[in-house]
Design a protein around this nucleic acid. Sequence first.
DNA 1: CTATGTAAACAAC
DNA 2: GTTGTTTACATAG
Length: 471
Amino acid sequence: MATAFPEPAPSKGPRPSAFMTLNDSTAMQWAPHNDFPVDPAGQDGFDYDLPLHFAQQSVGLYDYTQNGVPYNHNYNLTYSAPYLGPSCPRSYTNDLDLTGLPMNIPESYPPAAYQIEPQTPQEAMDLSDQGINGQLRQLREDYDNQYPSNIKQEDLTGYNSPYDSDITRSSTPSGDPPMPPHGYKNDGAGEEGAIDKEQPYAQLIYRALKEAPGHTMILRDIYDWFKKNTEKAADKETKGWQNSIRHNLSMNGAFEKVDYLCEESKKGFMWRLTEEALREGVKSTTRYRSKQPNKRGHRSQNPLPQRQASGAKGGQAARRSARMRRSNRMNEPYRSEPHNFSRSVPSAFDTTYNTDTPMPYPPSPYYSSVGSEADLDYSKDDFGSALGGASLALMPPRSFTGSPLSQGMAACGDTGYILELDPSEPLFTNSPSPTADEPRTPDSRGRWEEDMALGGCAAYTFDTPYSEFPL
DNA sequence: CTATGTAAACAAC
DNA sequence: GTTGTTTACATAG
């Protein structure tokens, strides 16, 4: 099929310059498909075509605040079935699914998919006035009810790719050559409907999460999504694809774990798109990988021990991080649960963000290049005009009991946190700007240990700003 | 070199 | 056995 990559009209973005100025060539990213055309002038106006029934259905269930929803407000999630099994049409038409999410996204996939347009924060979910526990319980119940784990495997024959043939896979903001269609197999050559153009795992996961309510799924659902929507899982023999999914979830900063562990089930954590990912799209997982030299040159030495050592290292690190999480939960059994999110990719950046400074928003160590234009853009643009000039400074901590309205940006009430930072200043001045030279992965053991010394919470959890929530 | 996929070690559950 | 983290290696471009 099309090996050519028709560039989407670069003019479409309302604020293309914001990202076009991102000169970091390594900041390759897949632009998000924008479900909601951004209207910079009317962020609170739902200027886009929001189906009426959507608005109605959303009452009390999905209340899209206009912006400023901290993305670690996990209690905002209402997890229902991302899709409904066999009856769920794969065509993403204007029909509403049960989620009440506007699925009118024929253009949410290409060609618009590769526009560099931040997404409106309307996507963030809000809730009604239930308590947080109720929310979480509801979330889980919804999930369990609507998404039974015995997922039916839909026949893939006749599958009609939602991201159809003209997908250009990826193109970089600055009109760089599109992402090489890695894994682009033209082999099928005849098979109708053959999704010969599988996108990278990260991108596919992004899509899956994007479709999901709250942009949140559990691993199993992601698996299932892949089964239904991709060819990656076609090979039922190997589980490599699952491994790859997990790998990408873990390694790619676009995905974060919602640190709400359901004890009674072993479904594990929920995975969610980060706010940055929603705005800016998913970026190459490679960026988050360790920058340790690949040792490709001298692997002949003794690859096996090295491999084992690798595993051992991973295991150690995994154990430490898990211990941290556990420790957190034990120390703060209530608060830490729903509020935390876990960044899959631990970051040396995290230490720069000391817990004494109320962060209105978890820093975006993975996306907003610290100290770069992207950072500025992050700080002043994406939270919408409602914030006014102090955009960076204000982020309302929202009361659980507040009305949905009060949870919007207008409600910068009593407990509001004000970041005393000049928006023009980089958030983390002592953080390296992650570039190709400095991947956003903790390549410094020293820093890592430092994290541990700090009490073992800095690296993964960001619950401090919310500790004052009236629970 | 980058991006991606994959295998695998390992820990925790 | 599953989930999550991490490292290493292979391959394509």
